[in-house]
Structures are given as C-alpha cells and as structure tokens.
Design a protein around this nucleic acid. Structure first.
Lengths: 231, 231
DNA sequence: TTACTTAGTGTAGAATATACACACTATATT
DNA sequence: AATATAGTGTGTATATTCTACACTAAGTAA
C-alpha cells in the first residue's frame, strides 16, 4: 500500500450510549475506568478502533466485550471531533447508540481489563462522566427521543412479550411527559404492529394485563413508506 | 502531552455534499481531482482534517476553500469508516451536508490545487464518483429528503426572496413527487413562517408572482417545540 | 366478602389534511 | 387587435386525526 497520505498522530474511537429499560426507568450502561486518564471515573463504554476493522465492526466488538451481547440494533448518531476532547492526544470518536432488552438480567461481565465494573444507571441519576461523555449522552438521548416520535424503536427495549402499560411507560420516560391511556392505546393498536397474545401477565397482585408482541413484518410495511407530505 | 495512546496509521477526512437549487434542478457540487488516487475523477469536495482543528472547523474550512462561501448551514450526517474505502490507507471520513443559495451566480473558484475544477451537477445526472462517494451522496440526499419533511430547510436553498411556486418546485424535486398547489400554499402559509413582501417577481413574461421571505424568528418558535406525540 | 389496584373501554368536538375546478393576469406572437 | 400561453391565485366539502375526559371490570390479598 502506498502511503501518500500525510502522517497524522491520531486515533479513532467508539463510544456507546446503551439504553435499557427496567423497573420503569430508562437506564444507560456506564463503566468505571481502570486506566488513566480519568481512572476511577465513570464513563460511557468505548474504546479504540483497530487499524483493520470498520467502525461498525468496532462498535459491535466493544459492545460485546462489555456486555456479552450480540445482534443488537445499533446506530451511529454523531461524531465528536473537538481538538481537546481527549487530554492525551487527538481522538475523534464516533458515537453509537444501542437499545437492549434487559429482561430482568442485569448482570454485566466486562471482559476487557480497562474496566473495573459496569452498571446500569438511571438517566435521571447520572454521575459526572469522563471526557465529553455527558455531551455524548445528551445527544444520544435526544436522538432516541426524536426517533421514537416517528419510529417504534421502543420495542427494542421491552421484553418480547409486554403489556400496553409497559409500552406506554417507556414512551413516557423517553418523551418525559404523561400520555393519555386511551389515546395511546388507540394509536398503538391502530398501527396494527402489535400482535395480541393469548397470554396474560403473571405474578402481579392485581388484575393481570394482556400481553402483546411486536410484529416486525407489519412494522416494515408501515414504516418503510415514504414520509408523508400529502399530495 | 503524554502519549499513552497507541500509534495508529490513520487519517480523518471530511467530505461534503453541497446542495444547490438552480433552474428548477437540485444540484450538488462536484470537483475534478487533480491528485492520485482517482486523478481526473469526479468526487465530492473533501479533504483531510488537520491535526489541530476540530472537525466542524475543518468542514467549514474545506467548504470555504472550494467555494469562497462562509456561514453556511452545515450539518454532519454520517461517518464512513470501512477499512478499504481509501486505496492508500485507513481514512475515516465524516460527511457533512450544506445547502447553499445559488442566486444565479454559479462560478466556483477552487483555491486548493488538488482540484482542477468544480461544477454544479444535477443530482439526476451524476457521473461516476471516486472512492465511496456515491454512497455518501446517496445517504446525504436521503438525509435532506427526510429532514425537509419536518423542518423547512428548503429556505436555505432559495434566494432570499422567492415565490411560492419556486418553493413548491424545490419540495417536489427533493421529495420526488408532485404536490397540489392549493394544499401546498395553504400549508406553508399556515405555518406562519413566510413574510409576504410588497414586491413581485420581475423579468418574467407572464403574470408576476408575489415574493416571500422566510421569517427565521417565527420559525424557531414553531419548530423548537418538541416533536408531538399528543397527550 | 370486602378492599384495593390496575386493566380496559367510547365518544364527541376540534383541528388538520386532502381532494378538487376555475378565473385572472401579464406577456409574446401572429 | 386577437389569440395563445404559462403561471398566479382562490374556496369549499369531506375525511382523517387529535384531544379531552371518567367510569366499570377483573383479579389479588386480606
């Protein structure tokens, strides 16, 4: 490979804002750093892209190393490239977000040793974060808030079978406002992307609610359509 | 500055998809490369980010060097990081789009000598492009198509004073469909973000249309609101 | 059996979006 | 002067979507 390219003292990294929903709370995954700079600080999970891997691959790899999770819906949302965002050199970071299904199991097993631990933290209760990670988080949160308004990404966060009330709670948390129960149900059911199951919620000490499933097929039909601008 | 960071043989670049509207056609700015690789090929304007400049700054600088334009509405939209996208090494590129007001003057004066010339090309009539630039263009075009559906970015492309017909034509080109004149006007005027002027179009051989101006203030009020999800 | 908690449901009025047809005005051409 | 052309400009009826609002039903726990 020729190298007409100028030499450049720089690094690419990936940072991930990984959302989960649990206990009626929206959470993100934070790690405690075990390396300078910002040793012992909380940070978004992220690491350096390797020389011979694509950034999408790096994002998947890093998420896997930190959580053991694969095949997660992940999307790039912004690239942060201020000169001084990293105290040790020029690091441009590509931020991804992911939404994962907690299903009650919240244990996280960091593999890489640059992390002491990884925990789920409510977005309403975040500690101070290393680097410009607060900025990155904020932008990622805006992104999903925005996106959920026109695409039902919420399903990524819920267990496979869920109640309408859970779905509504999730919308409320992300949009940060109360929604009307009847209107919410009407709208969701009208989309026709929910499959009503013959099952009910279990283990609750009150009337059990019906469970629903997300119907991916019908979803794609509905939302692949062009955005409308009437005729 | 310590350098605990691993050494990495890599480069960041910026590529720009610069839209303009002229003659009822949506165009983008292409350059003819004067450098290997892809010498004499058409490409999106783009170049390497310098060691000590932020990526946003680089984007502005590069646009300026190629067009002499400043203070352009510009937005990052995606970062392309496949391993082999550049034949000479690892180059991750951050793509920006810009929308500029042609106002009839289409002359472009490239400053940098890695460019032989720069021209406006209709998006319906693009030549083959260097690198993965076709992919970048496509994604950028999707981006504005999407965005125009919920934000009136179209004004960036029109002259300061424009007719409703021009505005509609622009929407039609970007959305790639015919719109109903009456409904379009009603909708646009209802937003209340257009200021009707006391002037009319000049130099046309038919009934002159009223000119309008975009009212930025009212715009921010209207569109800063949260995206709606009812109550 | 009672008390408690959440599930589940309908409707009317308001606002918005869509569909549709024709007259007017200015200029260029003959 | 007559005519053709091309684009401006308007109103109304209908369909759809959005919003506001409160009670009963079902299940569990004591």
């Amino acid at each position: 490979m020729e190298t007409l390219l100028p030499k450049f003292d720089s690094v690419f990294s990936i940072d991930c804002v990984i959302f989960g929903f649990d206990d009626g709370e929206l959470k993100i995954l934070l790690i405690e750093r075990n390396e300078e700079p910002f040793k012992d600080w909380w940070a978004l999970p992220g690491y350096i892209v390797e020389q011979d891997e694509s950034i999408d691959h790096a994002a998947e790899r890093i998420l896997y190393e930190l959580t053991g999770l694969r095949d997660i819906y992940m999307d790039q949302f912004y690239t942060f490239g201020d000169v001084n965002r990293h105290p040790q050199g020029r690091v441009i970071t590509v931020a991804y977000y992911a939404m994962i299904r907690l299903n009650g199991n919240k244990e996280l097993k960091p593999v890489s040793n640059y992390v002491s631990k990884a925990v789920w933290t409510s977005v309403n209760d975040l500690p101070q974060l290393a680097f410009d990670h607060e900025k990155i988080f904020t932008r990622g949160f805006e992104k999903i808030r925005n996106k959920i308004s026109y695409q039902p990404i919420a399903f990524e966060l819920l267990p496979e079978k869920f109640t309408l009330t859970q779905l509504q709670q999730l919308y409320e948390v992300i949009l940060n406002k109360k929604l009307d129960k009847r209107n919410f149900r009407k709208k969701m059911l009208n989309y026709g992307i929910l499959k009503e199951l013959d099952e009910k919620q279990k283990g609750v000490s009150y009337r059990a609610a019906k469970l629903y499933k997300f119907d991916k097929r019908k979803y794609s039909k509905l939302f692949q359509k062009e955005l409308t601008f009437g005729k």
